[in-house]
Write a protein that binds this DNA or RNA. Sequence first.
RNA 1: GCCCAGGUAGUAUAGUCCGGUCUAGUAUAAGCGGCUGUCGCCCGCUAGACCCGGGUUCAAAUCCCGGCCUGGGCGCCA
Length: 439
Amino acid sequence: MKLDALGDWVRTAYSMNVTPEMDGQEITLMGWVQEIRDLGGIRFVILQDREGTIQITIPKKKVSLEVLSKSDTLQKRFSIGVKGTVKKTNMTPRGIEVMPNEIKIFSTATEQLPIDITGKTPALIEARLDARALDLCQEQNLAVFKIQHHALAAIRDFLFEKGFLEIHTPRIIASATEGGAALFTMDYFGEKAFLAQSPQLYKEQLVMSLEKVFEVGPFFRAEASHTRRHLSEFVSVDIEQAFTDAKGVMELLEHTIQHACKVVNEKCSNELALLKHKVEVPTLPFKQLTYDEVLRDLKKKGVEVPWGEDIPTEAFRVLGKRYPHFYFITDWPTHSKAFYIKPREDKPELCEGFDLMWRWIELVSGGTRIADKALLVNRLKEQGLNPEAFKYHLQAFDYGMPPHAGWAIGLERLTMILTGKKNIREVTLYPRDRSRLTP
RNA sequence: GCCCAGGUAGUAUAGUCCGGUCUAGUAUAAGCGGCUGUCGCCCGCUAGACCCGGGUUCAAAUCCCGGCCUGGGCGCCA
């Protein structure tokens, strides 16, 4: 098929911008054929663009031969441009249709698409991810990523407003940062290197100079997790702040989350309606439970967790039913948290680390960090880590490390909460997990 | 890494327990034809599938074994 060049055509409106008041105006639309309904003497082509859909109406005896023959060849997913006249009508749900004067076909598509994009026979997640570029054209998916965009924009705006500077730390690192999680290894000009699991150590070092920093970026965990809430590559929204403690950054966090919910509610009402999901703007302050209180709560529900143990998922599910919104868990046993989390001065077996939960899902973790070098070295040893491997990080503590604290939000998990999606892969453009490296 | 479930047209499913009119059903998508107000359009026709390998049996989509792949759960965590 001979394709048309874009030429001097410029889009004058997105589908959603067209209103009945524009009756009689000529507009230029760009997009894709979503659906064709041919009734014989009249043909309806649904044009889709990023913002929505609009009906192109083709009464076969009234349009030019050129428009008719172009529209004869159209198929689903063809990329097209339409110059046409807006017509006010009571025969479409939106009260408008477009009578085409000229149609350009920019590109074609295969006859049989790998997934159903009309939603009549929804494909399973595997087939959808295999054809992700096409899958993302579906309105539901557009809605998910618009919500993610607005949530992240709201968080950025909020942090800028609070005086945070946006930073970029290395993804390629020389040694394991936190011990715990497995890292991906890579070859770095013949040396062994790792993909960063978090910006933790770098953002801590930066509070010595930039004081209040945040970073949004991908991090990597080589854990062979196989759940609906884990990825090998995920986006973390990290902050670190000098001259404050857990209490300070918890307050910042709850305001950040509240702001994001509020903005999403305001800006994404159409998207939320499409997803049949409601976002409640949470009231402040968030509920705070100590680790000990959580254990007591669980015991009442018949779930025994020995003191000092991590809380298993099953127990979190029980807890999530009792607290079906956002809540903090504080005062964790020191040994259960990373080496850089500060132990409480009055009770060193507990620490100033916290998690922010949404129902049963861990959304954020954070805490007061250790600013004292000797204590940090001790904690490294207690966790079975070699201080020598951290010498470049530890040297920062010789030059005036201020008291500081921070947290990290899992952006995909936040998006799950804001969209009601139950699988983290749905809210990730191109998810990476134990068994998926493509597309 | 461990545990469970499952692989049937492009997609989603029925059939599998209890082997045999299964020549594998349905929906949707696709192709062709018809229809001037559809909006999950409608109607007719056409084409399209039992994950791979081995075994049991007169006979395997169905039972057994191995493999591969997928989904879910646990652990780990954002």
